[in-house]
Structures are given as C-alpha cells and as structure tokens.
C-alpha cells in the first residue's frame, strides 16, 4: 500500500525517480514505461490500442473508461489473469500477455447470485 507519508520530497530524489525507465514485455515484445504509469497508459504511449479479443465476436478491446469501471482492458500480468490495465501500475520486468478473460468474474459468481 502506498500513500501519504512515504514520498520522497526533495527535488533530486524526485528527478532521479522520474528519470528511471521501467522495462516490461507484452507477449515477449520489449517496451518501456515511465515510473508511476499504469499498464494502460504505457501501452497507449507505445501505440498499442488493444490487447485482448472478446469471447463471442473476437472483437479487439483496449482502454474504454480508463478508470476501472468497464473491464474492457483486462490483461494478464506475470501469469495473473483478468487485471485491469488502466489501474495496474507497471513494475520493472513485468511480463504481460494478451488473453481472453474468464467467462464471468469468478467472485461475482460466488457471491452475487
């Protein structure tokens, strides 16, 4: 958990942090991100606009709502499926894979019905 209190405040620390380049891969392709970027933002900067296809129509999907509401942007990161790219921060060395999401959200199935 991050939050108030653990932030570098002096300028040099901020500048050093900002200058870092994070490396990650999408289906093996090497890409870079700025620190603090979400996967969705980093992929957008890299010109990648979609990273999964829908189950029925096989339609390409990427970011839509941009803020965690729509689940269009689901992606697999380091083997964990169904993560929202718009919320997920890039971590150095992260391995992203494009994939189809599970049929329905498992927790909803367990709880909501």
């Amino acid at each position: 958990m991050t939050g108030t209190g653990e932030r570098p405040t002096d300028e040099h620390a901020l500048a050093a942090a900002a200058a870092r380049v994070l490396k990650f891969t999408l289906d093996g392709r090497e890409l870079t991100a700025r620190p603090g970027q979400s996967v969705g933002a980093a992929l957008t900067d890299a010109g990648v606009r979609s990273w999964r296809h829908t189950r029925r129509g096989g339609r390409p999907r990427g970011l839509f709502c941009g803020i965690g509401i729509c689940y269009d942007c689901l992606i697999t990161a380091d083997g964990v499926p169904n993560l929202r790219a718009c919320l997920l921060p890039v971590v150095d060395g992260m391995r992203l894979t494009t994939s189809a999401p599970a049929k329905t959200p498992p927790a909803y199935d367990a709880l909501a019905r």
């Binding site: 970027q37 933002a41 957008t44 900067d45 606009r49 390409p60 970011l63 839509f64 709502c65 941009g66």
Partner: peptide, 20 residues
C-alpha cells in the same frame, strides 16, 4: 466498441495522470 473510442473521462484521466 472499436479501440480508440473512449469515455471522455478516461481520455482525461490518461492526460491528467500520465500525460498520455
């Protein structure tokens, strides 16, 4: 549902949060 169509707030979130 084509990629490149986004919620206006999402476009803004990328700008404000990431300058993307």
């Amino acid at each position: 549902d084509l990629p490149g169509v986004m919620a206006a707030g999402g476009v803004q979130a990328l700008l404000k949060g990431h300058h993307t």
